[in-house]
Design a protein around this nucleic acid. Sequence first.
RNA 1: GGACCCGUGGUGUAGCGGCCCAACAUGCCAGCCUGUCACGCUGGAGAUCGCCGGUUCGAAUCCGGUCGGGUCCGCCA
Length: 596
Amino acid sequence: MAAHQSLRTHTCGELRATHVGERVTLAGWVHRRRDHGHLTFFDLRDRYGITQVVTSADEAPATHEAAAEARNEWVIQVSGAVRRRPEGTANRELPTGEVEVAVDEVSVLNESKVPPFYINEEQPGLEEALRLQYRYLDLRRPPMRDRMLLRARLSSAIRRELEAEDFVEIETPLLIRSTPEGARDFVVPSRLQAGQFYALPQSPQQLKQLLMVAGYDRYYQMAHCMRDEDSRKDRGPEFTQVDIEMSFVREEDVMAAVEAMVTAVTRQVVPERQISQTPFPRLRYEEALARFGSDKPDLRFGMELMELSDALRVVDFRVFADALAAGGAVFAIRAQGCGGYSRKQLDELTDLAKRQGAAGLVHLSVESDGSLRGPAAKFLEASSAAVLAATGAEPGDLLLIVADADRATAATALGQLRLEMGERLGLRDPAVLAYVWVYRFPMFKWDADLNRWDATHNPFSAPVWEEADRMEADPGGIHAQQYDLALNGWELGGGSIRIHRRDLLERAFALMGHTLEGMRDQFGALLDALEYGAPPHGGIAIGVERWVALLANQENIREVTAFPKTQSGSDLMLGAPSPLDQQQLAELHLRVDLGG
RNA sequence: GGACCCGUGGUGUAGCGGCCCAACAUGCCAGCCUGUCACGCUGGAGAUCGCCGGUUCGAAUCCGGUCGGGUCCGCCA
């Protein structure tokens, strides 16, 4: 093992029966102490594991007495002989559990105050703010350590796989130019140029495209990105992405390369997990929305959406009739065996549907005689057979139905209910990883507020080539060569084939209301570069925190981030952000105005 | 910008108008204990209930505000 240094001969995860008889020196933290008077056991911990060391009043009285001072989290160094534990006292829970070190020499390398929370046991309810304030102690806890090591193995495997396929890692700058597109920028004031600001990258998008123009036809980078938008459990102000770009490729090529890397990496890093399907399923956006109510569906379970628009077209029920008359849709999911849900449970589901933009939720339970029961049942009597036929619902089942004048709204609201029911029914198997491609997104969406078309994803994404001619004639009807990679209901990454011809890019931007001057000002370098032999190219970016979180079965990316920010963007350990003093402000040509 | 939830010894919880200057577990300290591994036993110290204000004879408990944390909507090309 490489971790041998002059203060230790072995790590705390290393000793086995084969070491019995060797004299060793270990250094680490006191994980736990069991004091039996004339005999004291210490569990000594480092990042490699735990080893039991013993001091004895009979064998080494002075050492025994000296060691008795040590408390939890003190850093100590011990020397002694490795010996097999007495018959019947081996600990099968520990890899090192067959042996122990009979300590004859101990030295305290550093004492520790009593920590503000337990390092040596799990503590589910522990206030996260406290963990963040003492993150260096939190990171010492074995579950956090394991997640950090998992993340390191993931990064390493990604690099190994990509480099084996001739990808080259190229770093791009962190101080770049602000552009109003996309998320809000974090900005950095320039000292040398008064009144001017850099922006921190939301992603190295333009730079990696410029690298393609430069001929580095397979680029990757573990790229740090920053977006000044409100946090969620799956996104924070700064994050890391595996940024990839390739030249001379079609969608197929990028997806194949990424899929090969993702599959190989997953198998190396979490061999115990099951990838539900390879090659990864591919769903067109429209299909993902219609079947799962999401553009990042969780494919670990079925419970697909069923469209009832036709079955219910004749029903005299305002909620459905109005939605359908307005050109909308009615969707349902069938929750098997949930017909007995209580009023409270149904209210919770209704609240969820409303939060997701639905006007309401119609719930029907199927009685043992096949009749439907629920607040809206009396309106549906004439159609109950059609509903049962369309949904396949059986006695004891619960049907959840959402109608909306907007098809996507109905589908996404029900998609959220599907996830909730999947959770409640235990269908989201934590052992399974269900990667899925979602592709062929609409290229533009109408922005009612700005009264213009806007890119659904990335403004540099290319239209499906055969559709490019219709861009101006039918902006809402054409699709982008855009593909997202989803995993267990989370968006892991997204990418596209880019526009590599200046005229086409200008047309796309013009459609989004950009003037030629505005484009030159903001994207001048890229536009110019496209005129110097830009090859066809495309790529993807994969969110590292989300990926690790899913591989570690964590709900929250803070659990896989060494030093995360709070929801309001604070670093509770460092106390950031903080004010600047007057001199710093003056150098940066800034004046702070807190008046509001 | 908005909605909701949380904030009681070091930590996690209980208490939710007077029986509480606050209970339980764990941790901490001390003593005892030669085979433990969440060691055990005995004893002890430790919180005026995030903060400010109000209601009340009386507030951890009710109300308002505020600070911190979380979840969500908006936002996130």
